[in-house]
Write a protein that binds this DNA or RNA. Structure first.
Lengths: 340, 340
DNA sequence: CTGTTAGCGCCTTCAC
DNA sequence: GTGAAGGCGCTAACAG
């Protein structure tokens, strides 16, 4: 029994013998309407099965209760967690979420932004497909001109000027390196052929660069003779596994392996397994938690970041900016924690 | 530099010396406009940074390019996978996704449906907070009356009449039970005190009931003397872990433990660990894959379901129903596969 | 407290 | 191929 025509406030108005505006007010600003009138209207709305038309309202008021979330990967549990936080907090402020999974495709990202612009999104949380400096999406001028509040999350666009919530990647790199310094590369254990294999993201990715810089900073002067080998990748599992597999064949097992995110670390572990090397034959350490392994008494030390917190922060920042569009953009840095 | 006012087709029209309608046509039905005119208009649109107003369009045409997805848990990787599939396919058909994570809260679910109605969603994929027969959400009449296409995914509302994509739970239960019959409860191994512990969802959950029924069917007459103990839960990890922990204290280690979903199985394994019992001291088997454990040579047999496929099916079904609102509702069943 | 008027941006209908 | 008028449903602004 499909509704032939949607019931509008005009229908309600006719039904109770009032005009549209009174109905509109009764439903939206109850205090502006006499109690009795209001009750009759509410009653009628219920009976007729009235559903407000968000398009009409949006058109009239030219603002929306929509927040756009644009992300490159729903797969990544870290992103799933952030999205969960965003969704939960957005709801509390009566915003609905429009979610776009760009799947790493810049064109889809651009279309997502356009759709959000056309829906007059109140704000956008953006985690772009790439954080390399030469990625200059074509939507940037449009997005800027729109005046919509934007907060970048984790990944950022080079020089975009938008606010951001990012991880303390430098610290994470340093922290891991310092850990390795005492546990894998202590002076008294040097053999002269100590290698640290870092399995990274794209070579020019900001996040990768920062993490690498942290490593180099921490090791500088402290670890003579320790060679750092870097394998570039794209933050996903399969390429990391393959690259590490090849490395193992050519160079044997390094003293330690550092995976720059969860999927990379898992990929490295997979390569070890496939090479018939037990995961505890070398020191594997990563960024991001490997889920549920504690249940099997497997501990891979890692720097964990609170994705839920990061997501919540991003939404807070977004709301702040929506309230005050003039406010200067801010970058919030979330620091992780080493778990051993 | 916030946009003072959005640029509309009227602005473009003025800019090129035409009227609104011509601009509208040039942008939406290019074939109805002379080539030269169209090019001038497209050029102007680009220059002025024109963004169509989805609200105005939606208001006029009273249909939208929005598909609503309402789910109880983004956490569950199985749902994340389904959402990924939905999102990817929706995009291909030029639909945007409005995502609602109800977090298990019936009230939020109701609000989500109302929001989708008010946005004139073209269709809704619904995985409600509960699939128990006494859950009768208040939005049901409104949703029915709206005539919007609805496809339920995994969880279903009792007697709702909407289409659905569900798992073959009966089969999954049977399959696991048959496996246990040969691997844990083979005749020649009976000790007279053989117990199968099933860690389930809510007692009246359809999914739980079906899976249990499958177990009982398969075991009927085949496993005299095998006692089935059932622990009820809510499909999440912590309660399952606690319940299994208590059980182990009271009854010792059963011959086999069957977790009715991923999180439950992990909870059971956690309880074993906390009780100081190695995970391979008993036969643990589950529904849903335990991710990444193969990397550590841990194999917990399980029935896996293709969440991506299920999500894709749900969207296909939804599109079919949007095309033909008269079509009878259908229930699609997705069968899993035993992985040992 | 309630009503009148008008218009948000777009597109359908009918004319030219 | 192009234009003029009107209305989708709702709500600001100004009456009364």
């Amino acid at each position: 029994m499909a509704a032939s025509r949607n019931v509008t406030i005009a229908d309600i108005a006719r039904h109770v013998g009032m005009t549209n505006i009174t109905v509109s007010r009764a439903l939206n600003r109850p205090e502006m309407v006499r109690q009795a009138t209001r009750e009759r209207i509410e009653q009628a709305a219920l009976e007729l099965g009235y559903v407000p038309n968000a398009f009409a309202r949006g058109l009239k008021r030219s603002d929306s209760r929509l927040i756009g979330v644009v992300t490159a990967s729903l797969d990544n549990p870290f992103y799933a967690e952030m999205i969960k936080a965003i969704s939960r907090h957005a709801k509390q402020h009566d915003y609905a979420i429009m979610l776009f999974d760009t799947d790493g495709d810049a064109h889809l990202e651009s279309m997502a932004i356009d759709t959000l612009l056309s829906y007059q999104a109140a704000g956008i949380i953006l985690s772009p497909v790439s954080d390399e400096p030469d990625y200059r999406p074509d939507y940037l001028p449009r997005l800027r001109a729109s005046g919509i509040a934007v907060v970048q999350l984790d990944r950022t666009l080079h020089d975009s000027g938008f606010s951001a919530v990012v991880l303390d990647n430098l610290w994470a790199g340093e922290r891991v390196a310092r850990y390795l310094l005492t546990h894998a590369f202590a002076c008294d254990r040097r053999t002269g052929d100590d290698r640290l294999l870092v399995v990274a993201g794209p070579e020019h990715s900001r996040i990768t660069c920062e993490r690498l810089e942290g490593i180099r900073d921490a090791l500088a002067g402290q670890a003579d003779g320790v060679a750092i080998d870097v394998l570039w990748g794209d933050y996903t599992l399969a390429p990391a596994a393959e690259a590490v597999g090849d490395y193992l064949k050519c160079h044997g097992v390094p003293r330690a392996i550092f995976g720059l995110n969860q999927l990379i670390t898992l990929g490295a572990l997979k390569a070890l397994q496939q090479a018939g090397i037990a995961w505890d034959q070398t020191r594997v350490i990563g960024i991001d938690r490997l889920p549920y392994l504690d249940i099997f008494d497997i501990t891979v030390p890692c720097v964990v970041h609170d994705g839920y917190h990061a997501g919540a922060q991003a939404l807070e920042q977004l709301l702040a900016q929506m309230r005050d569009p003039q406010a200067a953009s801010r970058t919030l840095t979330v620091r992780g924690e080493l778990l051993t």
